[in-house]
Design a protein around this nucleic acid. Structure first.
Lengths: 337, 337
DNA sequence: AGATCCGGATGGAACGTTCCAATAGCTTTC
DNA sequence: GAAAGCTATTGGAACGTTCCATCCGGATCT
């Protein structure tokens, strides 16, 4: 179990520890003979540099911490892919920890990352208060992903949720819909902009008297409850725009079990383009986000502060994309015009 | 950006660094006055112990590394939950890294964990060769999850796949099925035992002449191809047992689009009980695995080697559970008896 | 009163690296 | 042939902790 150290290698190769260190870091700065000897000794002993010791003296770990609010959300997996890729290219490594959809556990995860002295932090769909996050940002660069701030010390990346909502509404209007209800997810990350984007788009189409927004959240259950509420109101719209795919799924279940047809009786649009939205039995029309891009951008933002020492806040927005599937179609009775 | 150290705290509190260290570790060993002073100074400076330095001197990090073969597999998210929970209880923390379904990238992830000097390693659905993993196990405790070994140096946890297959067959036979086809996933992790369990169960029910197994893999596409093959054979069974939920989903799509009814014309059983199997539109009967339990067990195995220094290999098996939903029912024409 | 004990606090070594100034041994230059 | 310059290598300090042996001052014992 005892790992060999740089001293063991030095002794076996008959050189100083400094030389071994140099071989590990810049092999072509040493003579062929020494390099050979050191490499050989290292291989024989199974030497592996101790990143803990290195981090201590260099006062940086070359690790970017990633705190996910929820490991179960497939959305984050793709984002993490992008993060990992971009980090590797720049000579950093990514380390993940989950907040398990609980602000307290998320804080514990962040605390761990700080004690571990990661060089930068990316928070996916964080549930923590911005003021708390700003405090964290006093000790390292922090980028918020999938959530907007205007903070000077915390950067953020996200999709243009307003544009996404607009795309959904435009699509429905183009099909002939007017009575389009939005299920909103309150103040959750990204939700407010989706809601305001919906309202703005409705107005732009001269449908402001049709604006109707029902409060829910980002879960299947929340979507189901909201849809039940809509059905029970007796005032059935021709289309429903959900705040994300999970909520759309919940709504779908309720519509199905009410004996209504999608999209015959009511069209349905989600948001996120999760993998399951593509399943033939689901075939949900939704708004896709360039997930890997988001991850890459987040890494770039962190490294700009770290290596190029940027001091100002940056807030990047990438455009979303409409993905049309089978849950949207023309309204049964076109009430238009 | 410069973090305060234990010295800064000591100076401000007017005590020695050793005392500060003691307050952080065992607060009730110091006098009330000193404790108060130190805690106050620490809070004022925003002191946070440097885990890197601590790890260096203690020669252990209290971190359990978790390498996931695939972040996208929802199966792993639950397992990770169990790992995280069990680790926290025992005073360890879990750190994740993804192998992105690629043996090379997985090795890089493992290498990183080793350099970081994590205390133990849990590998979920690893794609690396066992001999490679055994080499890794020379420097720290390694537990393989969702994959079996008989290794003396590497532990493993998994579900009893044979029992799971038996449960599936028993359920179908109880409903009156006899012509039950198995789609198998070849040699992929867990697949051989599911196949042999199926065969054994069929024999036990006196149905050995009905044994029929079609080769595929663990993906949706693979399941679809196998199901197409079954349909084209012209010899339609009354029930299909897929190697996992993804493959079942593929089969489901093919059956749906052939205009056949599930379970009216053919019953379908999956394996894994993914979250999406519970969606009402899917409602897949499947075999559930106690995922969080698997995670907890893996942690226990690692810590047994670490803290109780066990030296022998352990290979734990936990029982799976049948989850009946809407894709199974009695066969249309009961050919029994 | 001197020896003993005890709780509380301290200073220095150690952990395994990197980094930097210094050195040794050559070659080149004037 | 001494000075200067180069290349390859080295030793020691530093990073921020923990751990251990030691110390200090007061109480308790004989």
């Amino acid at each position: 179990m005892k790992q060999p150290t740089i001293h063991d290698v030095a002794e076996r190769a008959g050189v100083s520890k400094s030389l071994v260190s140099l071989v590990m870091r810049e092999p072509d700065r040493v003579s062929d003979a020494s390099r050979q000897a050191v490499l050989e000794a290292a291989a024989e002993l199974g030497y592996r540099p101790n990143a803990v010791a290195r981090s201590l003296v260099q006062r940086r770990t070359r690790v970017i911490g990633v705190v996910l609010s929820d490991l179960h959300n497939p959305f984050f997996a793709d984002v993490a892919d992008g993060i990992e890729e971009a980090a590797t290219v720049r000579g950093y490594r990514a380390l993940l920890s989950s907040g398990f959809l609980d602000a307290k556990r998320e804080r514990a995860a962040v605390e761990m990352m700080l004690e571990l002295r990661v060089d930068g932090l990316i928070m996916l769909g964080s549930m923590m208060k911005v003021t708390k996050i700003e405090k964290v940002a006093a000790s390292l660069p922090v980028t918020l992903l999938g959530r907007h701030t205007t903070s000077k010390v915390v950067d953020s990346v996200g999709v243009d949720d307003s544009a996404g909502a607009r795309a959904a509404v435009d699509h429905l209007v183009a099909l002939g819909h007017e009575r389009i209800v939005h299920i909103n997810a309150g103040k959750a990350a990204g939700a407010p902009r989706r809601q305001s984007g919906y309202k703005k788009a409705m107005r732009r189409h001269g449908l402001e008297d049709q604006i109707r927004s029902v409060k829910a959240n980002f879960t299947e259950r929340g979507g189901a409850r909201a849809m039940t509420e809509i059905l029970e109101s007796g005032d059935l719209p021709t289309a429903v725009f959900a705040p994300n795919d999970f909520a759309a799924l919940g709504a779908m279940e309720v519509i199905d079990s009410a004996g209504l047809d999608i999209p015959g009786d009511v069209s349905l649009v989600g948001y996120d383009n999760l993998g399951l939205a593509a399943l033939p039995r689901i075939a949900l029309t939704t708004i896709g986000q360039p997930r890997a891009d988001l991850g890459r951008t987040a890494v770039r933002l962190v490294l700009e502060r770290l290596d190029d020492d940027r001091k100002t806040g940056r807030h990047e927005v990438v455009p979303p994309k409409l993905v049309v599937r089978a849950t949207t179609g023309p309204p049964r009775h076109n009430t238009r015009g």
